[in-house]
Write a protein that binds this DNA or RNA. Structure first.
Length: 214
DNA sequence: GCCCAGGTGTTTC
DNA sequence: GAAACACATGGG
């Protein structure tokens, strides 16, 4: 079976099991972007808690956020872990946002991506979360779950570079599926996690486990 | 008490 | 480049 069909079948197995995930959670595009920064290496639950505090304290206004003492901001986002550096990262991002927001819709995707990556605290995954879910650009997001799941399924070893994996998926998956596909991978990983098993050692999809589809 | 969670930057080789 | 390390709370 060719690669494109394999990835399509895995997508369908996940979608038929979990249904649409309606990502990314957030009332506004800016809230989505803030969420992408705060959720780095933590759970969405922790990030959401911090966002609620930020809404209460700052109305999630970038001008307000950049003007706050970083240690104060850190206390407000304490629940996300690494709160001291994340407070700085969030302010870095907000400063960038305030200067670039007028150009977000007209900038070519590659230019926008480079601009995001130039912000200290925005790495490839956070940049792609913002590009895909807030800016509606066609980029495939690679996270640790994606890396683990598809290495487990034998598509690659697992230590490949971020860019190599992104290219792999973007070449084989329809851009219309990028958003839902990534959301389903994360959902799947969470379900496996609930059973306190290593991701995809025992696949929660049972008979519809992607491994059995090959 | 231990392990992991929707990563990133810096340092060192 | 790629490996090792710091950054830190919350839930199972």
């Amino acid at each position: 079976m060719i690669l494109e069909d394999q990835l399509q079948e895995i997508y369908e197995a996940l979608f038929s099991t979990y249904g649409p995930q309606n990502w990314w959670p957030g009332e506004t595009l800016f809230e989505i972007m803030v969420g992408a920064v705060l959720v780095q290496n933590t759970t969405w639950q922790n990030a959401e808690r911090a966002i609620r505090v930020l809404i209460q304290k700052t109305f999630l206004d970038p001008v307000t956020i950049v003007s706050i003492d970083p240690s104060q901001l850190g206390q407000w986002i304490r629940s996300v872990g690494y709160y001291n550096i994340k407070a700085r990262y969030l302010q870095n991002f907000c400063r960038w946002y305030l200067t670039c927001k007028k150009d977000l819709e007209v900038m070519p995707t590659a230019t926008l991506r480079r601009a995001l990556l130039s912000v200290k605290g925005i790495g490839p995954e956070t940049a792609d979360d913002i590009l895909l879910y807030a800016c509606k650009r066609s980029v495939f997001v690679i996270d640790s779950f994606t890396r683990r799941l598809f290495s487990r399924l034998g598509f690659f070893v697992g230590n490949e570079s971020y860019e190599k994996l992104r290219t792999f998926f973007q070449n084989a998956v329809s851009p219309t599926l990028y958003s839902e596909y990534h959301a389903l991978i994360v959902r799947h990983a969470k379900e496996v996690c609930k059973k306190r098993q290593p991701a995809c050692r025992s696949c929660v999809l049972g008979d519809f486990c992607p491994r059995s589809l090959q």
